[in-house]
Amino acid sequence: MKAGKFFAKAYLWLLLILMYSPIAIIAIFSFTEAKVLGNWTGFSLKLYENLFSGSISNSLFKAVENTLSIGVLSAFFSTLLGSIAAVGIYNLKGRKKQAITFLNNIPMLNPDIITGISLFLLFVAVGVTQGYLTVLLAHVSFCTPYVVLSVMPKLRQMEANTYEAALDLGATPGQALRKVILPQIRPGVVSGFILAFTLSIDDFAVTLFTKGNQGLETLSTFIYADARKGGLTPELRPLMTVVFLVVLLLLLLINYRSSKNTNKK
């Protein structure tokens, strides 16, 4: 039995080492100047310097800026749209509820490439110039369903008649939503926002099809374009290392937040 335990542990660690060796290699070789990956020409921060001040840096910063602003805006709009919709959907019944739930599920089940192409064809047919706004719209369309899904459970836990009570006491529907419903569903709204933001900054396929040809790039399309041109260019190494660290930090933060929340309860 001891040997079995040992092999089990060893298997897990082997798998983890295999899974993380690519990113480890990239991180290690981001600290040397060699063009060819695998050559160590001594410790150097040159690649990081290039990243922040070299020829690549302008377009890179623009791409990061776009990624973040599209992420925040699409998270904001889909949280707004999705939270309000969730309240409505929760109170719908029968056919209507089925129809809207069915539509709401489509973007979550559709592969990215289909979502991207379908929106692309729509924009082309209508004749809009594709760019920042079409990307934003596309992101809102595939993020909102997740917001609806994360708000819904909170509505189920809510006391059903508080909204009517607020109206009876003279609140306008807007006030009732803001002062009565919102405080109760806030955790779902917040996690919906975070989810929408992560989905948006992670997206590649939908952005690629809806960004048009006016030169708009997000981080992922930028990396794609760069890798497509010249394979794995040296500057991508520090960039990927930084992205990996940021994701790691974000995840630890979210995990810490949620474990604190569960502790409170």
Partner: peptide
């Protein structure tokens, strides 16, 4: 009184325009 179910309407229209219609375009 605005019924609560009305809150779903904007999103329903959004879904028709940016989820259903694009797929119809693929078919088309």
């Amino acid at each position: 009184r605005i019924k609560r179910t009305t809150w779903a309407l904007p999103y329903f229209i959004f879904l028709l325009l940016f989820v259903a219609l694009p797929l119809v375009m693929v078919l088309f």
